[in-house]
C-alpha cells in the first residue's frame, strides 16, 4: 500500500515541528523549575565553593543558550545526558525502564478492550436491557474515580484485605528472578525462555496495576463503542445486510462493528495518551520500575537530564501512537486510504 506509506511519511514530517517544540519547552521548563541541582548534589554540608565547582562540572555556569546548544548537540548523537542519581546515561536508563511501562500500559489497554468492545456491542444491540444499564454504570463510575484512588482501593481490597494479590512492590516479588532479557517484557521473555514460574510471578504482579489502568480506559471505550454501534446499527446498510439474509454474526461483526470501530480507534488513541500520563501515578502506587517513576524521582532531585529525557520519550511515543492510529484508520476505512 504505497498510499499508506506516503501517508506515514507525511505524518512523520508533520510531527517534526512538534518534537522540536517539545525539545525547546522541556529545556526551558526544567531550567525554570525551582531547586538547584548543584546544591542538591553537593549535599547540605557543602560550602559555597564546592557547590560552585559541581555547578561548573555540570556545565550549569554557562549561559542558557550555550547550555541549550550543548544539549542539542548531545541529542543529535542520541545522548540525553547523564542522570545524577543513577550515574548512568539517561538513554540507557530509559531504554531499560521503558519495557516495564509499555508492558503495563498495553496490558491495561488489552484488558479494557477485552471488556469494553463486547460490552459496548451487547449494550447497543439491546438498548434498555440490563447489559445496557451495566455499561452505563461502568462508564460513569470509571470516569468519576481518579486512577490513583482506584489503584489504592484495589491494593487495599485484594492485597491488604483478601490477600489474593502480591504486595505492590514492582514487577516481580523478591523470590522470583527476572527472565533473560529479550524484549524486556517479562511476560513475553519468560514465555520464550520457558520460565513459567517467572511468568506466573510477573503476571501476578501485573494484574492490579493493569486493572487500575484498564478500569480507567474502560469507561471512554465502552461509551464510544456503544454509541458508535448504536449509530451504525440504525443505518441503511445494516438494513440491506439484514434484507440479504446475512447471518446475525456477519451483520453484527463484519458489517456493523467494522464500521463502528472508526470512532473507537480515535478514542483508543486518546485513551492511550491519557494512559501514558496515568502511568506515572500508577507506577508510583505500585512501585513499578517504569519511566514514570524514574521521572518523578528525578524531578524531586532536580535532576534535569532524566526529566528532559522522559518528556522527550513521551513526545516521541505520542507521535508514534498517533501514527499507528492513522495507519489503523487507513486499514479499516478505504476512504482514508484512497482519498489521502
Amino acid at each position: 500500500m504505497p498510499v499508506l506509506v506516503s501517508l506515514v511519511l507525511r505524518r512523520l514530517l508533520g510531527a517534526l515541528p512538534s518534537i522540536a517544540a517539545v525539545v525547546v519547552v522541556t529545556f526551558v521548563l526544567t531550567r525554570a523549575l525551582p531547586g538547584d541541582p548543584a546544591a542538591y548534589f553537593a549535599g547540605p554540608a557543602a560550602d559555597a565553593q564546592s557547590v560552585e565547582e559541581i555547578r561548573r562540572k555540570l556545565g550549569l555556569d554557562k549561559p542558557l543558550p550555550v547550555q541549550f546548544l550543548a544539549y542539542l548537540g548531545d541529542l543529535a548523537q542520541g545522548e540525553m545526558g547523564t542522570s545524577l542519581i543513577t550515574g548512568q546515561p539517561v538513554s540507557a536508563d530509559i531504554l531499560a525502564r521503558l519495557p516495564a511501562s509499555v508492558e503495563l500500559t498495553l496490558c491495561g489497554l488489552a484488558l479494557a478492550l477485552a471488556v469494553s468492545l463486547p460490552l459496548g456491542v451487547a449494550a447497543a444491540t439491546r438498548p434498555g436491557s440490563w447489559v445496557d444499564h451495566m455499561a452505563r454504570v461502568i462508564s460513569t463510575a470509571g470516569v468519576s474515580l481518579p486512577v490513583f484512588f482506584t489503584g489504592l482501593l484495589l491494593v487495599y481490597i485484594f492485597y491488604y484485605l483478601l490477600g489474593w494479590a502480591p504486595a505492590p512492590m514492582g514487577r516481580l516479588d523478591l523470590f522470583a528472578s527476572a527472565p533473560t532479557t529479550i524484549t524486556g517484557f517479562y511476560l513475553v521473555d519468560s514465555l520464550i525462555t520457558g520460565q513459567f514460574a517467572t511468568f506466573r510471578a510477573a503476571a501476578a504482579q501485573l494484574v492490579l496495576p493493569a486493572l487500575t489502568l484498564g478500569l480507567f480506559a474502560l469507561a471512554p471505550l465502552t461509551r464510544m463503542t456503544r454509541a458508535s454501534m448504536l449509530g451504525v446499527l440504525g443505518s441503511d446498510f445494516i438494513r440491506t445486510a439484514r434484507a440479504g439474509g446475512l447471518s446475525r454474526g456477519t451483520v453484527l461483526v463484519t458489517y456493523a462493528l467494522r464500521n463502528a470501530l472508526l470512532p473507537v480507534v480515535t478514542t483508543l488513541g486518546m485513551v492511550f495518551s491519557f494512559l501514558l500520563g496515568a502511568n506515572v501515578l500508577v507506577e508510583k502506587v505500585f512501585a513499578w520500575p517504569g519511566i514514570g517513576s524514574y521521572a518523578i524521582e528525578a524531578l524531586v532531585a532536580s535532576d534535569y537530564a532524566p526529566v528532559q529525557g522522559f518528556i522527550l520519550t513521551m513526545a516521541i511515543m505520542y507521535v508514534g501512537l498517533n501514527l499507528m492510529i492513522d495507519i489503523l484508520y487507513g486499514l479499516i476505512d478505504p476512504r482514508v486510504r484512497i482519498e489521502a
Binding site: 443505518s235 441503511d236 446498510f237 438494513r239 440491506t240 445486510a241 463484519t254 458489517y255 467494522r258 464500521n259 479499516i332 476505512d333 478505504p334 476512504r335
Partner: peptide, 10 residues
C-alpha cells in the same frame, strides 16, 4: 437510497 444502503467500507 442506494448511496447509504451499501456498506461504505466493503
Amino acid at each position: 437510497n442506494p448511496r447509504t444502503a451499501l456498506n461504505p467500507i466493503r
